[in-house]
Each structure stands twice: as C-alpha cells, then as structure tokens.
Design a protein around this nucleic acid. Structure first.
Lengths: 203, 203
DNA sequence: TAAAAAGTACACAAATCTGTCTACTTTTTC
DNA sequence: GAAAAAGTAGACAGATTTGTGTACTTTTTA
C-alpha cells in the first residue's frame, strides 16, 4: 500500500511486482542510485532490474537525467515529509523541534540501506553543464533545510543570531551524515545533538 | 620548483610545461578530478590536457584506477603535510592545535579551486568491487584524521571522553566542508571553531 | 657515441552507454 | 467489444570508454 501526497509516493513498502511500470522504475532507480551513485548505474541496469522494456522506460523518462531528477525530487520530498511527521510528535516548541532533527538522523543512519546523502553526493556529481538542472535540485534540498531550521530559529533568537546558528546546525547535520557513513556509527547523531543543545542553551 | 618529501610532491606551483610526463599527468588529473570527479573524467581527457601520448600514460599508470589511487594518495599527503605545517606554528599546546584545524579549513575553503573533499566524495564513488582499493584510501584518510585529533585529545581528557569528542570534532570538520561547498561560504569554519572551543572549554 | 630507455602518434579492439526504431501483444477505456 | 493507450522484446545506431599494438623519434646513460 502506498501513501500518496502531492506528486510523490513513498514506495518503500511496496514490492516491485505490485507496482506499475513507472513506479517499478522509480523504486529500482532509487535502490541502485542509492547504493552505487547515479554515474555508475546505467539505464540498461535499471531497465533489467525493474522488468520493463526499454521503450516503456523512455516513454516515462525521456532521458537518464529525467529519472535522476525524479529520484532527487522524491528523496527530497520523502526526507522532509518524514522529518515533518517525526517533528509533529514533539512537544516543547521550536527548540525541541530543532533538537528532534538529530533523533530523526539517528533513525535514518540506522536504516539497512543507509549510504550517505544523495544531495551531498550531488554537490560533487552535478558540476557539468548538462546536469545544471540536477544541481538545482540539490540547491533546493539545502534551501529546504534552511526553511525548516530558520523558521524555528527566528522564533527563538534575533536575526543576526540566526545567521550564526543556521550554518552551525547545518554543519552538525551534514557532518553527522559524513561521519555516520565514514565511521559507520549512527550514534554520532546523539553526540551532535548534545552540541546542538548547548548552542541553543540560552534560548 | 617542487617540494619533495617521501614519495609525494606538491605540484601546485609548477607549470604544466615544466614538468616531466608523469607529473604532468598527475597535475592534470588532480585538476580534472577535483573539478568534475573521477567518474566523469576519462583517460582521454587527462591524456589530451597533459600532452602525453597514450602509451606514456599507460606506461606510468597501468590502469585508470592507478592514477586515481595516486591522486588520492597525493591529496591525503598534501592535506596533512599542510595541516602539520600550519599547526607547527601554533603556540598553546594540544587544544590550540585542534582549534587551529578550523583556521586551516577556512584557508582551504577560500582557495579558488575548492570543490569539496575528494574523500567525502570517495565515500560515495567507491562502493563497487573493482574500486575496493580506492575505498581503502578513503578509509586511510579518515584514519589520519583520527590520528591527528585523538593523539592530541588523549593529552587533554580521559579515553572515554575521547570517544565522544572525536566524532564530534570530525563532524564539525566534515560538516564545515559540506556547508562551505553547499552554501559557498568559507566563514562557516570560524563559526564551527567557536563550537569546538566550547566543547573543549573544560580542558 | 652507441645502446637502452622513454616518449610520440595514432589506429584499433572490445566493451559499454544512451537513445531510437520496428513489430507485436496486452490492458484500458469508452 | 472495438479503438486507443500502454507495454514487450530486442535489434541497432552512434558515441564514448578503457586499454593494446605498431612503428617511429627523442632523450638518457654508460
């Protein structure tokens, strides 16, 4: 069964067989891009593992970049829809909601298929002219973090302080991802939550 | 002119023309891999821009992976030889030396060709069987950070505290890199230095 | 200065990659 | 239930990629 919101779906719970061609492609692409990166995975592999014909693939996605774009958009949507859900259960206002990010990260890092962040990856993968659109998706993702965090910081501190705390918090978040991936330890999220607590202590 | 230490050289100050074939290849590969990543740059491009023949290239590097390995090794060596140099000028003991990392980062982020970290990239690029060796180079880089930081932490705090402070500091470092790259702002290094000061305040 | 080592130039093999085309079959929809 | 839409199967064009082979020239070194 699938949760449908806006244009995106959470396909994680569906089996490949139960899905229609377009979603089979997206689910397969998601798994392969996540594990190996968009550059090392070819269209042919996605086609083979999603059990669609090449024609069907190209009917849904006119080029490889389009399927990568769809992958990034759905990751972005899913990340923040899960974060919103997680945070909606938290009592304690803006500060508690910011701190809850780190519990969310720990959960994410503990997933079996955690393999870093598609968008941190994208900072490196999308530096050429023909993938400008994809780089745009990466920028959007970081803007979404800005929206999430700054909205809450503004209720806690002065604008000047937001300019300091936002990059610090974003560093703690992205640094957690790299360290969790590099050292293979999800607990780093809790260690960094402590730091976040201390830099927000006065609020 | 070139600074020669161990097996590696700092080729940044040399012009392409002044170098012998092997170093021309390395200097060119470094620039291209740095800008576009190892996956999107082909051997042919490196050969063309380093003005060597294909045969010469393959005489020095039996495969593409070998030139990537050489690139990673030299980056690793250069990063820590510069960090050591930077830190050697710092007075104030282990704590001041750890904090000096963030000044070093700010300098790095301010370089014209700063484009993120080759090793954070490698966490994503080297997930397949045929590049296990390269993934090993990435792991070594993170171990070198461990050596640098833990050696100093051990003189300041108890072993249990090292296990907390090291992942935190490494998060601040790697998070700085991502944020500097993503938001295009080198100043994040100084903001995170403040955090490092506060988590080391009791030492 | 002569032999050995290193480099040049470039054709080409083999694999792989993106995207198109044709011909046929199944599923939807009215 | 017939027409339209969607999907299957797979050949293939054209570009690109890594790596080898051949024949010749320049540079080092003993």
């Amino acid at each position: 069964m699938t949760t449908e919101v806006s244009n995106f779906k959470d396909l994680r719970a569906d089996t490949i067989e139960s899905l229609k061609p377009r979603d089979r492609i997206l689910k397969t692409a998601n798994a392969l891009f996540n594990e190996y990166g968009v550059n090392t995975i070819g269209i042919d592999r996605i086609i083979a593992e999603s059990s669609v014909s090449k024609r069907t693939f190209y009917n849904h996605f006119p080029s490889k970049n389009e399927v990568i774009a769809a992958y990034l958009e759905s990751k972005d949507w899913l990340r923040f829809s899960e974060l919103d859900k997680h945070v909606s259960r938290v009592k304690g206002g803006a500060k508690a909601e910011i701190l809850a990010i780190f519990d969310f990260l720990e959960q994410w890092f503990s997933e079996d298929d955690f393999n870093g962040c598609a968008f941190a990856r994208g900072l490196n993968d999308f530096n050429q002219e023909d993938v400008k659109v994809l780089r745009g998706k990466v920028d959007l993702y970081f803007e979404h973090w800005g929206d999430f965090i700054k909205t809450r910081l503004k209720t806690l501190v002065e604008p000047d302080e937001v300019k300091i705390l936002f990059p610090q918090l974003l560093s703690l978040i992205t640094g957690s991802v790299i360290v969790a991936q590099g050292l293979g330890d999800a607990k780093v999220a809790q260690l960094n939550k402590r730091i976040a607590e201390s830099i927000l202590a006065g609020c």
